[in-house]
Computed example of a mutant assay.
Amino acid sequence: MTTDDDGAPYDPELMAAVTDLGDALRGLVEASVRTTVPAAELRAVAATARAATTRLAASTRPATQLPALDDPVRFRRVYNPVTGVGSALAPPLVLREEPGGVVGEVSFGLTHEGPPGYLHGGMSGLVMDQVLGAATIRAGLWGMTARLELDYRRPVPLGTPVVCRGRVVESGGRTSVVTGSIALATEPDLPLVEAGAVFVLPREELRAAYFSEVTDASGRHAPPQRPTDATAPAPGGDR
């Protein structure tokens, strides 16, 4: 077994295989939106893809069961659509801690295109929700998105390194206020997208209801939780 820096164990062979498949799938998706091969070749590749799907579907987990490699408390989610090494949808974005928050660099491809040559605005929202959530976790807090607001200053170009940042600016009780941005890696202080969010830790009875069926890979009940000062009661609200 291999461990993270903070000691969470995982199977390194399985992690390498999931990462390899994720890389291959991302390459396939990107090629599928760029290709100009004729219809006959598209049909042949579709048949190959369906055969691969059948092989993978030979053994699957229910949606309520976490993957064997996941550890939500340590923010390891291998199929996350933004950061997951095993996700065909993820760029993937690799985040690291920096003073006061988190930061990561990434380039987006045609898979995530909105206006020609630029990132889809909804993808910006998905990415910033993830980055701001990561900043909350790294600050020792936890919560679900209660509000997310974005200001689109300029379009985010595809095929160009950008830097994503997030930091907690206020916290108290069950609530955290987080801000962040997407900017060109060459101009990190000139935001293309600015984001702000409020994360709220659901009340204990709601957490129990939301995640009542979630288990780990062994079948044990494993609801997301993070015992920090964010668990302190806060007045008002249904979350």
Results as ranks from 00 to 15, higher is better:
Pro227Gln: 09
Arg165Thr: 15
Val198Ser: 08
Thr231Val: 10
Leu25Asp: 04
His221Ile: 11
Arg26Gly: 03
Val127Tyr: 02
Val85Asp: 06
Gly101Gln: 10
Glu170Gln: 13
Leu69Asn: 06
Val178Met: 07
Gly133His: 05
Ile137Tyr: 06
Thr35Leu: 03
Ala63Val: 11
Asp238Tyr: 00
Pro224Cys: 05
Pro81Ser: 08
Arg77Phe: 13
Met128Glu: 04
Leu28Met: 13
Leu95Met: 15
Leu192Ala: 11
Met144Lys: 00
Ala51Asn: 05
Leu56Phe: 14
Pro157Ser: 11
Pro38Leu: 09
Ala58Asp: 10
Val169Pro: 00
Gly101Pro: 07
Arg34Phe: 03
Glu105Gln: 14
Ala40Cys: 03
Phe211Val: 07
Leu56Thr: 08
Val73Gly: 03
Thr83Lys: 03
Val78Ala: 05
Met15Ser: 10
Phe211His: 11
Ala39Met: 12
Arg61Ala: 10
Ala135Lys: 08
Val177Cys: 07
Val85Thr: 12
Leu150Asp: 05
Ala209Ser: 12
Glu97Lys: 09
Ser107Thr: 13
Leu148His: 03
Glu30Phe: 02
Ser181Val: 05
Arg220Pro: 00
Leu126Val: 14
Thr19Gln: 12
Ala68Val: 12
Thr231Leu: 12
Ala135Asp: 06
Leu141Gly: 05
Gly7Trp: 02
Val131Ala: 07
Asp20Lys: 12
Glu113Trp: 00
Ala46Thr: 11
Glu213Ile: 03
Ser218Leu: 03
Ile137Pro: 00
Thr136Met: 15
Tyr10Leu: 07
Ser176Tyr: 00
Ala16Gly: 08
Arg220Lys: 11
Gly121Cys: 08
Val106His: 05
Thr145Glu: 09
